[in-house]
Design a protein around this nucleic acid. Structure first.
Lengths: 344, 344
DNA sequence: TCGCAGCATCGCAGCGCTACGATCGGGGAT
DNA sequence: ATCCCCGATCGTAGCGCTGCGATGCTGCGA
């Protein structure tokens, strides 16, 4: 047998360098090293320097898993979005991560693909990490998801939507108002036969809200508006298909709102193919102000939803709550801007 | 004072329901409950049912932080990309997350914004989570990053590039070959005055590789090729600017490769504005096959890099390594496809 | 000279779970 | 009948860190 150890039990693998080794090297206690990482200013300069040197010499990397267990909360923010392939959410994810990283917070990402059951599974999995906060998309969730969220003593932010009361905090804007703004814009430009071309609206509830807001505002202006839905993804192909349908189903259609700039672009290209002059015969308004909107021919009139602002505001609320500051605003309105260009 | 407890020390907050409570409710030991979550098939059906019922009744959510500490490895995969706003990486992130989620693995996301120092900080922060694997973008890293990665006993996958030896495993394709393919395509279509229009190539090393491969292949075909770089982001505006520059700096330029479909689209719109017929007078090839490429007028010839395949292959390697299966392939070539459409 | 506030530092007792080895029965082989 | 093998279950000892309370120590006023 090996050394004199009295029948030691098998050990699992461990960390290369632990905090107590750093403490030994710096000739202080482990508590002081811990304090050094959590509140460096509470450690005297000489100890601080000694610890810094030991950390560098040994190449110590703190084990956040152990820290999270001991502190009963991890430095992770769970972020659940429908899809990062969607440029809006990608922008928000990016802005949120950028705002959180300097605070030593990391982002645990999940995609629901617009499936509420999947969202619930993701919330459950996230909770298992005792995250510092949970950020999810939209105000609609399964009852179980809602219960899980309420039971967990964790800040929750629901983003990209405004209307119903959030579980905890909300950051977003009113999609109905977006639709209404577009409808009024089109009516003001003399359009009388309107259509809203959306994709996947059975799942994308916010696109559906924009469509409803659009139709309601058009009606209020005394103008008829149809809503056309394409079941597939919201891409340019959907836009081309939807324009074709609109042209067939709505004689003399002269104003179209798209649920998304990609759809609008598809419609724009389709119009170009048919030599249908935009905006003279057909006005077109998008949503998103994606990078290509300004570059299109003609430049696309669209709604800019401030996806990065959403991310930054979410970060602000999360950080404030973590610091224990009172957060008075239950719901932040990030608004949106009608970007008036040429297409509609 | 409170109850008769003999001077109990202050406790930190804890989890609502713990595994031992579930064990008590199911009338088994905590070990069995743990086993139930890790290898359900090793638990007898009666015990299994009792535990399932207790879990449901109590609303138990396992604490993965504690589990990760005990097992010395967490069920998290750290994913570091330049930016999720970039549609390529968004696709990979999405595919990877989709492949990992069913295995109970979650994605910890970080953005480098093409900054190697930031990458190092992210790797350091990721390591603190004892992740099951680390996935990063590209083969170029700081020496310290490389050392950190090597020291950590963690599977590492470097993706979206191929060439130099990976730290551990690699999944990607040869960007030089992409450039060469585009150059040869253009030459084969009778183009003799070529230009590569790229953006941010001082940071986006892979775009630079495409440019170099393009120029080298053009030279090999006996055709001159210029490389034009725009310092700003790779968006349609850059494309418009670059086309303008190409037209001024390279008289009779007749073939352009763009570093990205967004750039290509900007050039396409700019050509349209100038009534420069594409592809008759100017052939244009993009990179990415983004959703709008097929919808453009004319449809954009481009390179499809299979971003989702990259994600799936990364997941496959990570999973294989986690299961302890030997992974023979050090580097997987995901290839790319020239999508021949009309623009070039 | 003593008391004491205030800061820096330390020691201890877990956080909730998993890996390991041990235990316990119930066949089937001898 | 006895022994052994094997699957199911259990008990224990931590994983590495943090929060709490306690302990020193310094300097200053009374």
């Amino acid at each position: 047998m090996d050394d004199a150890g009295p029948r030691r039990r098998g050990r699992r693998k461990m960390q290369a360098v632990t905090m107590s080794e750093v403490a030994a090297a710096a000739d202080v206690s482990a508590s002081t090293v811990s304090l050094y990482f959590r509140r460096p200013k509470s450690v005297s300069p000489p100890a601080r320097d000694a610890i810094a040197k030991a950390v560098a010499d040994l190449g110590y990397v703190p084990n956040l898993v152990a820290g999270g267990l001991a502190a009963a909360s991890s430095r992770v923010v769970s972020l659940i979005v429908p899809s990062v392939r969607n440029a809006f959410f990608a922008e928000t994810v990016s802005a949120l991560e950028a705002a959180l990283a300097p605070q030593g917070l990391q982002v645990l990402l999940g995609h629901t693909e617009y499936d509420l059951a999947r969202e619930e599974a993701l919330v459950r999995a996230s909770l298992a990490w005792a995250p510092a906060a949970i950020v999810l998309t939209g105000l609609e969730h399964n009852p179980d998801t809602r219960a899980l969220l309420k039971k967990a003593r964790v800040p929750v932010v629901e983003m990209w939507e405004r209307g119903a009361a959030p579980v905890d905090m909300g950051v977003g804007f009113d999609h109905g108002a977006v639709g209404a703004t577009v409808a009024r814009r089109l009516v003001a430009r003399g359009r009388r036969r309107l259509a809203f071309c959306g994709a996947r609206m059975q799942e994308d509830r916010r696109a559906a809200q924009r469509a409803e807001g659009f139709a309601a505002a058009a009606r209020a202006e005394g103008v008829a508006a149809a809503i056309l839905n394409h079941p597939g993804p919201a891409d340019p192909q959907a836009g081309a298909l939807l324009l074709d349908r609109a042209l067939r189903e709505i004689p003399d259609v002269d104003g179209i709102a798209a649920s998304n700039d990609l759809v609008a672009m598809g419609a724009l290209f389709e119009a170009q193919r048919r030599a249908l002059p935009v905006p003279e015969q057909l006005a077109l308004v998008g949503f998103g102000d994606l990078p290509f909107a300004a570059a299109c021919v003609p430049p696309l009139t669209t709604i800019r939803p401030a996806g990065d602002l959403v991310g930054r505001e979410v970060a602000r609320l999360v950080l404030a709550r973590m610091r224990g500051e009172p957060v008075l605003e239950r719901a932040v309105d990030t608004g949106f801007v009608l970007v008036e260009r040429v297409s509609g």
